[in-house]
Amino acid sequence: MTEGMTESVKQQSAPAGDESRNAAPSSGLGIALAATLRRDLVLMLRYRGEVLNPLVFFALVITLFPIGISPDPELLQRIAPGLLWVAALLAALLSLDSLFRGDFDDGSLEQLLLAPQPLAALSLAKVAVHWLLTGLPLALMAPLLGVMLSLPPGSYSILSLSLALGSASLSLIGAIGAALTVGLARGGVLLSLLVLPLYIPVLIFGAGAVQAAIMGDGAGAHLAILGALLAASLALAPWGIAAALRISING
């Protein structure tokens, strides 16, 4: 699983001439990103539970609501957008703690810090893997749970799309919190305290998109705002994640 990293290191040191030093980091960036992506994907896929647990959690939470409130389809239909979004958000939150934990424990996070490539870019690759294996499956699974909550037809594609877009922002913002708490022994509850208030705008516009689709209004505006939130977090969050990782490791 570490051959990807060593590969990139080899690639780094291959042009050993002093004059090519300056060019090396920029040319190695693509390789390092690909290696980080591949390594994290392989790692996550080996621990299948890490990928499946959030999905099971999502389905379970959605099951609790009809039991706790009422199986009345009309009522469920009214609260379905909010329920699906809140449950997906909590499922994504649940998986955040393991985002940097394993790498922190076995020391590979320190290697990431020592790499000549910018830490922000490398952590972005890690977050991308996290989204690919949590946010995206949640988005794909949501329509199934929407059927169980008698979500009206016609809003399923919007539900998936809003969750796919929104969960990417959630992964990015959440990664800052995960990076801040990775050095703490019991960071789990603290992580949710830090991250949940920051999730509120995404929740508002994500659930709003599904609501608008049900009402028959176009959800385009909501999706556009979700896209804008994603663009903003893509531009800003990596710097926060990198700074937070440096604090967690160097103190």
């Binding site: 603290l190 305290l193 208030p197 920051l198 937070a244 604090i247």
Partner: peptide, 29 residues
């Protein structure tokens, strides 16, 4: 969140830096 984060680091310096990052993230949000 900021108060809790500062308090949960064993070293004062780490807690201070973590709280600063969180405050900046918060103020953007």
């Amino acid at each position: 969140g900021v108060i809790a984060l500062r308090g949960s680091f064993a070293s004062r310096h780490s807690g201070a830096r973590a709280a600063s990052v969180l405050a900046m993230v918060g103020v953007i949000n």
